[in-house]
Amino acid sequence: METNMQLQAPAPGVGTDRRAVVDEVDLIPVRTYWQLVRQRFMQHRLAVIALVLLAVLVILAWTIPTLTGELYQKTSLDLIDQGPSLSAPLGYDHLGENTFVRLMRATQTSLTIGFAAVLIIVGIGVTLGSIAGYVGGLVDNLLMRLVDVVLSIPSFFFIVALVAFWGGGNVWVIIFAIGLAGWTTAARLVRAEFLRLREVDFVQAARALGASPRRIVLRHMLPMALAPILVAATLGIADSVVLEAALSFLGFGISPPEASLGNMLNNAQRYFYREPILMFYPGIMLILVVLCASFLGDGLRDALDPRQRIER
C-alpha cells in the first residue's frame, strides 16, 4: 500500500518514489459479500445438488399441472389401477386418476403452502423481532412474553384449532394457521441478532453520524440479520411442508379432489394392500422436498456464517 507515503509527506517529492510500493489490496479480486457467499455455497456440493433438484421440482410442479389443466382430478372408471404408460408414467390409482399429474399437483400445493407459510413466519417474525430487539426495554419484554405464550401452546393443536375455527380444506387457511403458529422462532432469532447488532461498532458509528433510526434499521441492521433469517426460512419450508402433510393426512388439511402430498398419502394408505406403490410416490416426494430444504439450509448457513469467512 502506498498509503503512508502519501500521508508521511503532505509535501510532494518524497525521497522514496524510486520504487512503487505494491498495494496488497490490488492483488485481490473485487468481490461483494454476496459473491463471496455464492463462492462458498458452490463449495457445498450437497447444497448445490439440493438447489438444482428443488428447482427441477418447482418447475415440474408448476408446468405439468398448468399444461394438463383439470386432469389431476379427473376420475375415469376404465383407467382404474392401470399400469404406467407414456401419458401416465406412474399409472392410475383406484379412482382412475393419473398418478403422475396428481403427484405434481400435490407437490405444487405443498410447496405453495411451504413457501407462503414461511413468508408469513418471516414477515411476523422479522417485524416483531426487530421491534423487540431495536426498542428493547418494556416493549421487548412484552413481546417476548407473547412469544412464550404462543410457544406454550402445542403448535399442532393450535393449528388444528385454527383450521377447525376457519373451516378446513382451504389452502389459505392452512397457510395462515401454520404461519401464525410458527413465527416465534424467527422472532427470537431476529431479536437476538438485533440486540447484538445494536452494540456493534458500525451501528454505533452510524448513530454518531446522525443517521435516523429508520436508516440504521434498514441499512445496517436488517441486511446483517438477513443471513440467519434466510437460513431459518429455508429450514422452515421443510417444516411447513411436513406440517401440511400431517394435517392433510389426518384429514384437517387439504381434502380431495384437491391434491396435496398429505392427502395422497392418506388415500394411498387406504388402498395399501391393493396397491402399496401409491404410498411410495408422495412419500418419496415429501422426503425429497424436506431433504432438499435441509441441505439447502445447511449450505446457506455455511456460506453466510461470518465465522467461516475466508479473509481475502
Binding site: 498509503t3 505494491v22 492483488l27 485481490i28 481475502r312
Partner: peptide, 25 residues
C-alpha cells in the same frame, strides 16, 4: 514507520519477503 503491509500469504513476492517494505532494498 515500516511502510506498507505484510504481503498476502497467497501471493508472496519471489525474492525477499520484506523487500516491498524495506528501506534498504
Amino acid at each position: 514507520v515500516i511502510e506498507g503491509v505484510v504481503p498476502n500469504p497467497l501471493n508472496l513476492p519471489k525474492g525477499c519477503l520484506f523487500a516491498r517494505r524495506c528501506p534498504c532494498v
